[in-house]
Each structure stands twice: as structure tokens, then as C-alpha cells.
Nucleic acid binder design. Structure first.
Lengths: 205, 205
DNA sequence: GTCTATACTCTGATAGAC
DNA sequence: GTCTATCAGAGTATAGAC
């Protein structure tokens, strides 16, 4: 019996409820703008009860952020150096767009942290994140060197995928306002982004 | 003597100082996360003195937002239907990227407002903004119909320009962390985005 | 485990002297 | 126009009953 202390079923469930409520609030208002009252309200618990499960507002936020980066970067980790370059890249784009559609709150939590200068994530950015991106950038560069993708700066290519896919989650309110009713932003984006990256990266014969 | 009440030189100067300080703070922490103490501190004024020039925290934020949309959309307004399509589009991209480099705080203020669901901007999004985008989308569509640009969904093309350029301001901390020292993100982005949109939109002969 | 009550700090805003 | 003092309310967190 090593590792984290065991927790009862009800404890586990309440902790998850709190995290979900906190994600809702933090992703919209940022750390400072969010209040424990809002989180407790969204979780259907009293404020002291929330603080029974987590020692502080900061602790809740920290746990959310720590889980986030793992989930967020999984599609990039899964980029397979042995796969077909264009297939792999377009699949990465599609998976990132799916995450924007299915996990917009996580996307906004991340965006909020970046806007604030990543005060609670700083080390990971220059460490794990940077290492992963550079690793995958080398894979992309290899594909370009062998003529299977048109050469572009690989790190900026990754930035462009992040920017284009996350925009549909982070600026969803604007996207919907501009498109008006009767549109499916994510379905349209999927087609558009597929076209965009094909045109950008298809080798000229 | 009609219109706004006249203000002394010192009044004008202090109001500008406050707006600049508030932009700094609001763009980082959002409306709820920002405090008058921070704004006063950044402005070098006492808190009551700040409230001498503006009746409330909300009033400062409102004035910032109202000025913002005008400035922010000027490059799009300037897209000239009579110009050369590719030149006009690439110039638009370049100007938006310049704004990300020179006005990152404004970009982040806007992003913060979007992340929160645009509670203090909602009407403008579906009104003036939507009208402008649809107007310019028609221009783009015309260029595509005449074969001078490769056809893509014009509104999503505009979204892609916003996403790609604003990313370098809003996620600047991440961009710099991943690139590491010795890089000029905006200079590299200018070249990359020029390439990207050329490849996407150059008509195939 | 959950609640009420409460301590204490922060925050937006005002009063009033200078 | 600017300051000190201060108020009322919101906010984080804790104490202690149940």
C-alpha cells in the first residue's frame, strides 16, 4: 500500500465534482477573477465543504493545471515518426480541433494562464513543453528534408496548428457571432484546416 | 461649444495615464481579476485619485473596450476591393501581425473579453463586427470567383488570419519559451505567414 | 462529512481636509 | 486636484457544532 492515501468513493466523487466546477469558473474568469463562492455554487456544495476537499483555491487551480498539460499535449506526443507525414500531420490537426470542440473549457483555462504570463506554469513551458516540441519539430524537419513535406519552419508550423485549432474554442463566442445561426463552426473548420495544411505542405512535384 | 465638456491639460494627461495603466492590468487579469489598487499603482496615482477621473472601475474598462474595437478592425476596413487581391491580403496579414507586436496588451484585452463570453461587448460582435466581416468576405469571395485567389471559405480565412496573428501576442510567453533565446518570433512569423497564405491562396495555373 | 458562524483581509467607493 | 481616513461588502479561510 504505497502512494497516495486512499479515498472513499464519495470523496473521490466530490473531488471530481469540485474540479469540474472549478474548471468552469477558472476557464472563464482566470485565477484571480474566479471566486470560491462561484465554484461552490457550480459544484452544489457549501464553501467550507469545498475547502474540506482542497486546502485552498490555489490548490484546486494547481491540480487543474497539472492535469491539463498532460491531456493537452497527448495528440502531439502521438505524432508517429514512422507514419505517413501528411496523414500524421492532418490527423494531429483533426485531433486538436476535436479537443477544441469537446474540451473548450480546458482550452480557455490554458489560454487564461498564457494571457497572464503563465505565472503557475512557467517551468513546464521552457522544460517539458519545449522539449516535446523540439523533439517533434525534428521529426517534421526530417520529413521536409526527405521531400515528403514542403519545407517550412517546423516550430512555427506547430504554433500555427495550435493557433488555428484553439481559436475555435477560445474565441467561440466571436466565431458564432460572426457566422450567425445555421453554421457548424467546427465542421466547417475541419474542412478548411484540412485544405489549408494540405496546400501548405503538399510537396510540389 | 457643443459636445464633450472641455478638460484641462493635466486632466487629459492623467486620464491617459490611467487608461494606459488599466490596459496593462485588465489585459493580464481580466475585468474581475484586476483591482483598482493595481491600476492606481501602475498609474502612479492614489486610488481615490483614479476614481476622481473615472466614476468606477467599470467605466475605465468600458472606455478601453470602446476604443479597442475601432483600432482593432482598422486593417480589415482598409482592405481595398480595388487593389490586387494577393497584395491586399498579405498586407492585411502583415498589419495584423504588426499590431500583435506593437499592441500586445490590446490583443490580450480583447482575448480576455472573448474568453469570458464577451459580456461587455456582445452587441458589437453580432452587429458592427459581423457586418464588417461579411462585407469583406464578399470582397474575398469576388476575388475567388474571378480566379484571382484560390477558393476557400472567406469568413474562415479571416478567422485564420486573426488566429495566426493574434496567437503571437496572446501566447507570446509560450512562443518565447518554446523557441528559446536568440529568436525574433515576430520576424519569423512574418516570413512564415507570408508563405502560408501565398501557398493557400495562389491560384493554380 | 457537512453545516453555521465568524475571523480577517481585500476591494470598490465615498467623505472631507488641504 | 490630491490626499488620508474610512465604510460597506465581498472574498479566503478557519473554528467548532452536529
Amino acid at each position: 500500500m504505497t502512494g497516495a492515501r486512499p479515498r472513499s468513493r464519495i470523496q473521490q466523487k466530490n473531488r471530481e465534482t469540485i474540479l469540474d466546477a472549478a474548471l468552469e469558473v477558472f476557464s472563464q474568469f482566470g485565477f484571480r477573477g474566479a471566486t470560491l463562492d462561484q465554484i461552490a455554487e457550480a459544484a452544489g456544495l457549501s464553501k467550507p465543504n469545498v475547502l474540506y476537499y482542497y486546502p485552498s483555491k490555489e490548490a484546486i487551480h494547481t491540480e487543474l493545471l497539472q492535469n491539463l498539460l498532460d491531456v493537452w499535449l497527448q495528440p502531439l506526443r502521438d505524432l508517429d515518426p514512422g507514419g505517413d507525414p501528411m496523414d500524421e500531420l492532418l490527423r494531429y490537426v483533426r485531433r486538436k480541433l476535436d479537443m477544441s470542440r469537446d474540451m473548450p473549457r480546458e482550452s480557455r483555462l490554458f489560454a487564461n494562464e498564457m494571457l497572464q504570463g503563465a505565472p503557475r506554469m512557467g517551468e513546464s513551458l521552457g522544460g517539458a513543453l519545449r522539449a516535446l516540441v523540439n523533439d517533434k519539430a525534428a521529426v517534421l524537419q526530417g520529413w521536409m528534408d526527405s521531400g515528403r513535406l514542403t519545407p517550412v519552419p517546423p516550430v512555427h508550423l506547430v504554433f500555427s496548428i495550435w493557433a488555428l485549432t484553439q481559436h475555435y474554442a477560445d474565441f467561440e463566442i466571436q466565431v458564432r457571432a460572426v457566422l450567425g445561426p445555421g453554421h457548424d463552426p467546427f465542421a466547417e473548420a475541419e474542412v478548411f484546416l484540412d485544405t489549408l495544411f494540405r496546400r501548405l505542405l503538399s510537396p510540389q512535384t
